[in-house]
Amino acid sequence: MTVTAEGVTNVEATKSGALEARAVSAWFGNHKVLENVNLFMPPQSVTALIGPSGCGKSTFLRILNRMHELVPIAQLSGEVLLDNEDIYAANVRATHTRARIGMVFQKPNPFPAMTIYENVLSGLKLTGTTVPNPDEVVETSLRQASLWNEVKDRLDSPGGALSGGQQQRLCIARSLAVQPDVLLMDEPCSALDPTSTRRVEETIHDIKQRVTVVIVTHNMQQAQRVSQQCAFFLAEENQPGYIVEAGLTTDIFGNPKDDRTNDYVNGRFG
């Protein structure tokens, strides 16, 4: 089964957090890195983006929350619809979109000079949001990121003093504190130990009830464990990347339509 835009949006129109890329292409200068990418990322589920390095997964992810345009030479075409509204429309502010669509990066990037507590609340502060119960927000967010038990006694120590895995979960907690509709994760576990990886996967499993998750991963087992949909990106030498095949994760891994998908998910190239 292919998840079509119409099919799912009609059913889930009331839910917030449906993300859809329509005919997205991207360039860095004259170098075209993505061509005509169409993908629907349904709410309340996890979409995994897989594919070899350099095929444009990170670029695509950054297009989804308007981080792409921060690169001076970057350009794009097409549309990205969040709940059926184009996030690149003239009347939509990039800051507003980014506040609704959070992002977790490959390299953990907590604010080192801020305490753990301040790190969790930093998104609220940055967007000028005041909450009546900051302590509660901190605890809930850290619990969701399964970090609470490890740091509850030292919320005042700097965020930079945590281990890599803890830093990454702090970054997840920070993203969740602003209650985004969508969370984008770019290889969030590639720098983490197995235990932290498992924690992050549990977190993804827990939060998908409330947040649409899009995750880039090089780990096929991880893609199968955490995602419901999957998109396979590929780029031929010096050609822009595109989606070879997208659909239910069970289909991509169990019954791929394209031979290249079959080869990739079975570790035969890439």
Binding site: N65, T95, N109, T127
Partner: peptide, 9 residues
């Protein structure tokens, strides 16, 4: 990028 990605101006 962390700050910008959270919606900071």
């Amino acid at each position: 990028e962390a700050a910008l990605a959270m919606g900071a101006t």
